[in-house]
């Protein structure tokens, strides 16, 4: 349904924009109906940039995104608006997604003004209530309140309810769980899973691997804008192949096992863009050689629906 083909985004940075920062580099993947794809990586790996590119908040430097076969980059006017009826996003910080001087329901009024101006008020109210119930909120308790009167979990569900007012088919969920408490976290996660069961596709952007494993059937591991490993979640979590994925897995704090002794490779900020493997500076594999530093490894299929970008496996 939603397809990314060789998507790239380069930012101009430094004084006078003299340097380039490759935030996303030739990323391709596809989301089917009712599928949850997790986008996993450290900070700075380009995962949020991909979310913003899909929502067309920024324009790609290369490659394209297609939705049902139509190039998203070329949409204009009514067709572009129609795209937002189908594709919506929810972001990390629920508190800064609202204007604190207006009541929280204003996000619903905005949707009505923009997309449903002809719907009668009573019918609209019904629709809002149904949408709120779908995300597990009691409309009587949450409507007509200011953002500070609602909890983080409620505000986050409010935003999902807002997205559900439109006939969305694809939701970009950018770190929507990370600011919530453990006890409400799982409720929002279960909500996403319920929505998925109703046919919604979700791009679940996170750095928490246990959450990603809980909800998604496919995962894309990103490192500095490049896909390091992708495929079925079960395979990636049970048999991580790329040294980067393995390092991430070993760093996850778990309740059944203590961290093994030994420090993870510290983050290195490479001086310049490399044509070779982006993970070269941190790679602990004894097999790594000069070739790794100059040739970027392609994604190789190691088993069905499991691809890894490492030439030394």
């Amino acid at each position: 349904m939603l397809k990314l083909e060789n998507l790239s985004k380069v930012y101009k940075v430094g004084t006078f924009g003299g340097q380039e920062l490759r935030a996303v580099s030739e990323v391709s993947f596809e989301a089917a109906d009712g599928e949850v794809i997790s986008l996993i990586g450290e900070s700075g790996s380009g995962k949020s940039t991909i979310g913003k590119l899909i929502l067309r908040l920024i324009t790609p430097t290369g490659g394209r995104i297609t939705f049902d076969g139509v190039d998203v980059g070329g949409l204009k006017g009514a067709a572009f608006k129609e795209y937002y009826r189908r594709v919506q996003g929810v972001f990390q910080d629920p508190f800064s997604s609202y204007n604190p001087i207006f009541k929280a329901d204003r996000v619903f009024h905005n949707v009505r003004q923009e997309f449903f101006p002809r719907v009668p008020p009573a019918e609209w109210h019904d629709k809002v209530c149904r949408s709120l119930e779908a995300v597990g909120l009691n409309p009587e308790h949450v409507l007509n309140k200011f953002p500070h009167q609602l909890s983080g979990g409620q505000l986050q569900r409010f935003l999902i309810a807002r997205a559900l007012l439109l006939d969305i088919r694809f939701l970009v969920a950018d770190e929507i769980i990370s600011m919530l408490d453990a006890s409400t976290r799982i409720d929002v996660l279960n909500l996403l899973a319920d929505l998925k069961a109703r046919g919604l596709s979700i791009l679940f952007i996170t750095h928490d691997l246990s959450l990603a494993n809980y909800i998604s059937e496919r995962a894309v591991i990103l490192y500095r804008g490049c896909v390091a490993e992708m495929g079925a979640t079960g395979k990636i979590f049970e048999q991580p192949q790329h040294p980067y994925t393995r390092m991430l897995m070993a760093s996850v704090p778990r309740l059944d096992k203590k961290w093994s002794v030994g420090e993870p490779a510290p983050k290195v900020v490479p001086a310049k863009l490399t044509a070779g493997c982006v993970y070269f500076d941190r790679c602990p594999l004894p097999a790594k050689d000069a070739d790794c530093a100059v040739t970027r490894p392609p994604l190789i299929e190691v088993s069905p629906d499991h691809r890894v970008a490492c030439s030394k496996l």
């Binding site: 006890s183 899973a193 996850v252």
Partner: peptide, 24 residues
């Protein structure tokens, strides 16, 4: 309840549905 609401690696929604703590 707090400990049981934490998702762990290996726990999948399809197999075990974890629950949060109802109420505020």
């Amino acid at each position: 309840l707090l400990i049981s609401s934490l998702p762990e690696i290996g726990v999948k929604y399809a197999d075990t549905r974890l629950t949060g703590i109802p109420g505020n």
